[in-house]
Amino acid sequence: MNKIFVFVLFLAFNTGFCQKKFDPVEVENFQKKINSEFADPKTSPLEEKDLKKFKTLEFYSANHKYFVNAKFIKAKNEKAFEMKTSTARKPKYIKFGTVYFVIDKVALQLNVYQDVQLSKTNEYKDHLFLPFSDLTCGKESYIGGRYIDLKIPKGNTIYIDFNQAYNPYCAYNHKYSCPIVPLENDLNVAIEAGVKTFH
């Protein structure tokens, strides 16, 4: 019986209340970092057969359209809930807030969550988890949706760079246990940014 591995990939994003502009260099650094992690046997989620021939993940071209300065509204009086995963594991999360933004003149919103257990640690006490799915899922991007890691903003604005959206480890290896994107975070638009589907 395979040991269940919990997928936790945290990338260093700087969030705040100031308006921030799209930076293609940041996207390039994100791509280099994730490729480096996937190429290293010590950190790669890839199965051995895929690791042997791995060169790079596939990415959408960096696009400023998918970098948004979103309005952030903190949730009130939310209770922790068990988030469904790809296995029987049900980690506790809490809805931390909602982000509101516009892409191609379409008003959109997504919920952001906080892992209850991780939030008790100094390293991840300000970490926010943004899972989402969109119209590219099952086509150019992973059918199960993608993730973005954020940090709690200091004000009511938070920047979200969908160019840095990545796949759950379940997209590469069945031994991982990955949170399933909540239904309320399914976007009825195509987010052509970030990591594409594997193979």
Rank of each mutant, 00 (worst) to 15 (best):
M1L: 12
N2K: 11
K3T: 15
F7N: 13
P24H: 04
V25E: 15
E26A: 13
N29M: 07
Q31K: 15
K32A: 15
K33D: 08
S44R: 05
L46H: 09
E48C: 08
K52R: 14
T56A: 14
Y66D: 05
V68N: 09
V68Y: 04
N69V: 04
N77C: 08
K79D: 12
F81S: 07
E82K: 11
M83I: 14
K92L: 15
K92I: 04
I94F: 09
K95Q: 12
G97M: 03
G97Q: 04
Y100N: 12
A107Q: 15
L108S: 06
L110F: 06
N122V: 10
D126E: 14
L128V: 00
P131T: 04
T136H: 06
C137E: 08
G138L: 08
G138H: 10
S141W: 05
Y142A: 04
G144L: 02
Y147Q: 02
L150C: 01
K151F: 06
K151S: 06
I152F: 13
I152W: 07
G155N: 07
T157S: 10
I158R: 00
Y159F: 13
I160S: 00
Y166A: 06
C170P: 04
A171L: 07
Y172W: 07
H174P: 15
K175C: 10
L187K: 02
V189R: 05
I191M: 03
E192L: 13
T197R: 11
T197M: 05
